[in-house]
Amino acid sequence: MILYILCFILFLVGLFGAITRRNVIKIVLGICIMEYSLNLLLILIGYMEDGVSPIVVKGGESNFVDPLPQAMVITVIVIGLATTAMLLAIAIRLYKKHGTFDIRQIKNLKG
């Protein structure tokens, strides 16, 4: 159980970083940390004691770990790749326009 709680704490660490940091790159890193904590959580959900990797070989092992969360993790990694690439591309463009990564100086719009 402690592992699940640690995953959740990692998620909150990422959320804290994404919300409180002032540097654009650090915000991106915060979002990445959230995503990795979820990947860990998904793998943990599929894990079982003494399980082997879910590949069918001759002889027929039976005690597999759950393969579905692993497939989900691959998908989440791909999505995270796209999100991170987009965020970084925008961050670089912002740096080019403003000459700084500090969001206090970038802020023009007011939601």
């Binding site: 654009v24 965020l87 925008i90 912002l94 326009k97 802020k107 023009n108 719009l109």
Partner: peptide, 8 residues
């Protein structure tokens, strides 16, 4: 760019 970053 700023709007998109916020949105993202």
């Amino acid at each position: 760019l700023e709007a998109s970053f916020k949105y993202q």
